[in-house]
Design a binder for these strands. Sequence first.
DNA 1: CGGAACGTTGAGTTGCCTCAAGCATAGTGG
DNA 2: CCACTATGCTTGAGGCAACTCAACGTTCCG
Lengths: 257, 257
Amino acid sequence: MFRYKESDMSVAYAPSDSIRPSHRGIHAPGCAGCAHVSACQAGGYGRDELSGMRSIVERAGLLRDGEYLYRPRSPFRSLYAVQSGMAKTVSVDSAGREMVLAFHLPGELFGLDAICLGYHDNAVISLGRTQFCRFPFEALRCLANREPEVQWHLINTMSRQIHHQSLSSGDYPAEERMAAFLVDLVDRRASLGLATDHLPLPMSRADIGNHLRLATETVSRLFARFRDAGFVRIERHVVHLNDLRGLREVARHVLER
Amino acid sequence: MFRYKESDMSVAYAPSDSIRPSHRGIHAPGCAGCAHVSACQAGGYGRDELSGMRSIVERAGLLRDGEYLYRPRSPFRSLYAVQSGMAKTVSVDSAGREMVLAFHLPGELFGLDAICLGYHDNAVISLGRTQFCRFPFEALRCLANREPEVQWHLINTMSRQIHHQSLSSGDYPAEERMAAFLVDLVDRRASLGLATDHLPLPMSRADIGNHLRLATETVSRLFARFRDAGFVRIERHVVHLNDLRGLREVARHVLER
DNA sequence: CGGAACGTTGAGTTGCCTCAAGCATAGTGG
DNA sequence: CCACTATGCTTGAGGCAACTCAACGTTCCG
């Protein structure tokens, strides 16, 4: 049966709205030092007309491995993004079985599914040490009513998420799903400006397997197969990519349409 | 290899914006006679503050079985809803294999995944004879910039779609997925005010199987199993529901969390 | 350094798929 | 109207991809 672990959900940094940026175009303090501003969905890709989003952001975390950002049934008050580190969204069914819905990289907005419910029915759990950005929804709503650009940005982001989910629902062999998973993560890292020669995988094999509908043993065997094929070099929590082309070829049908 | 069928995509009815409603609160001509206004996502559930959505709607169709509403690579210009009948959204991968992403009931908005791309990369195909409602996106954009309520309605609808997709991505046995599929359709019919004692299934067994990642033979065998268990009576394109409770029990883990 | 958690590898099992054959229905032309 | 055909649906038999079970190795952390 599923059990919650206790977590420290206090905010490690003062909310950024206690400090006002001097004029538009200067990033709010919360984003000023962030390496991902220009690629951050949540911050509006650093675009000037969305600077408002950066002025309402707050820090949340720092969470350690396994700690919860939020839990099922907790009220929906904010959208979130990872700032640094990685996190997973987990749904729990009535039998207590977990289902890993997504892994979140820095700058990727999540919690959007809770808008229509008014509460979260998933949990978000830190993988390793993770910093989060919080976007209070009330502030976002006020901002968006003044700035139509902000709403269109939200709509665009949600559209992208709907599109992305539909890609990963296909019926493909284990090997192709696995390759597609790795390629997708690398591509997302690339669009964030992160290194593409390696891939940090702070989650367990069980998490990967759960997400891809595979047994952990199968995940292990597939890593071994990709290693033997010369595609990757495997460390426990890092995959070094020797032949991304080859991997992409295996994943072709899953990802291309 | 996948091949397009030819289809008649002409509009069967004059666009409704050629006729102006006299004042707010009166449904636009396109929605006036529609049985689903009060449950229509697209029309904003008949709410007064969203009456603008009903004034920009156009009719599209009537399409016959197998005809396309739009195709992959066609430019994104509108959102759509089924008005009467049923339709499926189909994605086609680089090997030409189809993937049935969703079935659409009257009043359910679709095409939302194309907003971020600027073009559709799926096809929507009529199941039986189907009438569609078209929401030109430019008009919607203008409307939404004037009426924040309209944008929030869109955001809410997209949130619901993200949430719904995440439910159907779980790893459950064939029998449970099948039961959950039927129960989900009945529940959606119920919220539209349609009969819940039977379920029209105008799509082929192949479509159902594809959508659920099952072989058509498995679909057939599961229908037989549900029949023998006394849950349903099966006609080719209609399922009569004798024991919805029983079905819901089988689907419990898939649907409840 | 010892224990627990996680990961790997092998062996055997199984749920669903594929293949094959027969049946029902819808559409078509005589 | 009825044969005739094409298409889709059903049912059975056998196979296989991925799962479960089991044992062992590795890493992490107190």
